[in-house]
């Protein structure tokens, strides 16, 4: 790719940052060009971000309806899924699934709650609650 062909599409997913792309100058010599992004990459990143957002919103609605516990929502809001949460806490998946039950989660052991909180970067009390504002 030639330097002048390096996309400078100012993409939203770079949040005003630039990435280094390898491209050739007029003499065909390779060097690094700072790029404000390529719309194709933006499309792919946005798709992944929207999917995470969709899962989070869906989890929030289900938690509000009392179908699942707040843990289920917070897992998605931290861009995790059952697999990543299991790895981050060291808990078996089936034991985490039990904690998705609202009643069970209300009576969770403090030490176990603290481990979830640590993995999710929240305080134990934050983890028990749902956000008041849906846009959070």
């Amino acid at each position: 790719m030639k330097s002048q062909d390096v996309p400078q599409d100012n993409i939203s997913t770079y949040a005003s940052h630039k990435k280094a792309i390898y491209a050739t100058d007029d003499d065909g010599r390779y060097d690094i060009v700072a790029s404000t992004g390529w719309s194709v990459e933006e499309e792919a990143t946005k798709q992944a971000l929207l999917e995470l957002e969709r899962q989070t919103q869906d989890a929030l609605l289900r938690a509000i309806d009392g179908e699942v516990s707040a843990l289920y929502y917070h897992m998605y809001s931290k861009r995790m899924d059952l697999q990543v949460l299991a790895e981050s806490t060291g808990f078996f998946k089936w034991t985490i699934r039990r904690d998705f039950e609202p009643k069970r989660f209300q009576n969770i052991k403090k030490s176990r709650l603290a481990q979830y909180a640590d993995a999710l970067g929240l305080s134990s009390s934050e983890l028990m609650k749902l956000p008041k504002d849906r846009s959070e």
């Binding site: 280094a20 390779y30 194709v40 990459e41 499309e43």
Partner: peptide, 28 residues
């Protein structure tokens, strides 16, 4: 299917590859 395709592009372009899944770095 769409997510899977997008995922391939992300691995190729997004994850600090210098463009085209490291093929340009290797050319350099």
């Amino acid at each position: 299917a769409k997510l899977f395709l997008g995922h391939i592009v992300r691995m190729q372009e997004e994850i600090g590859t210098g463009g085209a899944g490291f093929r340009y770095i290797y050319a350099s």
